[in-house]
Amino acid sequence: MPNNRKVLVTGADGFIGSHLTEALVKAGYNVRSFVMYNSFNSWGWLDDCDKEIVKQIEIFTGDIRDPFGVKKAMSGCDTVLHLAALIAIPYSYHSPDTYVDTNIKGTLNVLQAARELGLSKIIHTSTSEVYGTAQFVPITEEHPLQGQSPYSATKIGADQIAMSFFRSFETPVGIIRPFNTYGPRQSARAIIPTVITQLAAGNQTIKLGSLSPTRDFNYVEDTVRGFLAALVSDKVIGEIINIGSNYEVSIGETAQLIAKIMGKELIIETESARLRPEGSEVERLWADNQKAKRLLNWEPKYGTLDGLNKGIEKTVEWFSNGENLAKYKMGIYNI
C-alpha cells in the first residue's frame, strides 16, 4: 500500500514512464521522477501531464549514464522503478555504442547505487524484443533469449546484470518484461502511432515496413498496472515476469483495424527505410502471461481483439486532438 516511502521512476519523461508517474501520484505514492537533463528544461511527456499532478512530483534532472547523479537521485528513496533506456530499434543500428552505455551501464549504475544505499526493491524494465522471433508460442519467461538488434542485445545484457546482482548480492531486484505497449504519447516511430498519424494527416497511402510480423500489443494502462502490481508484491523479487495480452495480431491486420476505427480507406506502401535487416526482424511475438496472473494477480483489461479495439480507439482519440498531433513531425520517418 502507498506510504511515505519515496519511489524513484527513471525514464519518467518517456511514454510509459510519464503514464506510470501519473498513476503512482494518483495512487498516493511519494514520487521522485528522474528525467533526462537538457538545456531546454524540458521534462518530456511530464510537461503534458495534469499540472496538479506534476506539482506533487519531485523532479530530478540528470543522465542515467552518470553513476554519481544516479546515486544522488536514489538517495532517500525506498524503491526504484527503472524504465530509463534507449528503445528505438532503427537508431540502435545507427548508434549501438550509446545503447550499451545507456541500457547496460545505466542499469548497472542503478543496481550499484541500490546495493550501496540498501534500497528495498528495484523493478527493472525489460522488453519482449529479448526473445527474438518466437521459437514456441505463447512465449513463456523460459523462452531462449536472442539479440536480433543492438537494442535487444543491450536489453538482454541489462536483464542479466540485474539478475546477477540478485544472485550475487541478494539485491532485491525483479524484472517486468512488457510486450508491445501502445497508447497516447507514444513515439510516431512505433507502428500504431505511425499509422494513426499518417492517416490523421490526410494520407490515404501510408508508408510502413514489413506487414507480416505479429505482435502482442499491450495498452499502456495495462502495462502501468503491471508495474503497480509488482511494486506491492514481494513475489516479484528474483523473478522475470511477462506483461502481455496473450493475443497475437499481424502488423498488416493492425493497420487495417486502425483505418477501420478512423473511418479511412487505406493503401499501404512498403518503404525500404522502414524495413529491418532480414535477420534482425522479429517475426513473431505472443506472450504467455500466466506467471503475471499467478505472482502479481495481474491480467490485461485490454486483451483479445475487443480489447485491442478499445485501446486503439483511446489512442486514436488522443492523437486526433490537434494540439497532441502538432507535437509530432509527421512529414518525416523518425527512427
Rank of each mutant, 00 (worst) to 15 (best):
V70N: 03
M74R: 10
D101P: 00
T98W: 00
R115Y: 07
L145I: 14
T98N: 13
I104L: 08
V70F: 04
I123D: 02
A85N: 08
S126M: 01
I87Y: 13
M163F: 11
G69S: 02
T140Q: 06
S75H: 03
G147I: 12
R177N: 15
T154E: 11
Q135F: 02
P67A: 08
F136Y: 15
A134L: 05
D101V: 01
P138G: 07
N103S: 12
L86D: 09
V100H: 08
I123F: 02
M163R: 08
Q135R: 13
T102K: 05
P67L: 07
V70K: 12
V100M: 08
A158D: 06
T133R: 02
P178H: 11
S168C: 03
I89S: 10
I139S: 14
K72V: 01
F166V: 09
T79E: 02
S92H: 04
K105F: 13
T102R: 03
M74Q: 12
V100I: 15
Q146M: 14
I161R: 02
V173N: 04
S92W: 01
Q160H: 05
D78R: 09
F169H: 15
T154R: 03
Q160R: 12
P96D: 11
P172T: 09
V80P: 06
A114G: 15
I176G: 02
T133F: 00
T127G: 03
